[in-house]
Amino acid sequence: MNELAVHFEGVNKRYAHFTLNDISLDLPTGSIMGFIGANGAGKSTTIRILMGLVRQDAGSVRVLGHAMPAEQTSAKMDIGFVSEDMRLYGAATLGWHMEFIRSIFPKWDAPYATDLLRRFDLKAEQKIKGLSHGQRVKAALLLALARRPKLLVLDEPTTGLDPVARREVLGELMAVLADEDRTILFSSHNTLDVEQISDQITFIDRGRIIDSADKEIFLDRWRRLRLALPPDAALPHIPGVVEIGGSGRLPVVTTKSFEPGMVYACNDSGATVQAIDTMTLEEIFVANVQSRRQEQIA
């Protein structure tokens, strides 16, 4: 059995005004990866390369053991794909779409599809053009999930949804995923969505992957330390400093390598640790992006 569902190695893709640079990415089988980046960071291009829809200029891509894009036909038999810019045929009913997908995928699970219809509060006889945006996203998810894919690729599925529909879609998606053992790549610029679903996080910015680790590692290691320094004292050495804010004697240090021993080290050097703030994934993402951009400028 292949341990990696997705393997990118040194992938490059150059456009006139955008370059995807040296993307290396591993998605182990059975994990759920949140792929976070600002608009235009390269998430969709990476996913299109993964799906074989865009050919990389350099580097290799393997999905479920298949080389992409050459073996995309075989790979896509086991991939469920839903993207923000994907639409179904407005003039046809959801039932027609289900029948169409069933005729293509031998693993189509009809009882599961019926169950999803109920859970998503959809009706098979409804025409797609009569559905709300939220219902269309749910319909696309149903079509992707009921084919029982080994890999589920969701490219910003919640973008453009109003808050209520977004919560509904995410809630249903999490409920569906809770009892499943799937490999999922979930891209979004909304860190809250990703945080709820993923167990691994990858940040992408300006066409480069800037960080990738388990979600818990990000949440455990990223901290903001609020320090108080005695007069004329220098800032103590803190590993993994990403950002230093605050004022001269009251610095706020953001570190990506926090461990409890740091507090003692700070105290030993004369500084007082007034508070240790945990960070949300959004704060981690923003701090990460800003520090990488400053590094690039420097």
Partner: peptide, 17 residues
């Protein structure tokens, strides 16, 4: 134009097909 092409291309098919 109506963005149904991503749906079609998500199916097990190459662009040649």
């Amino acid at each position: 134009k109506e963005q149904t092409l991503p749906f079609v291309m998500s199916l097990p098919i190459s662009y040649r097909e």
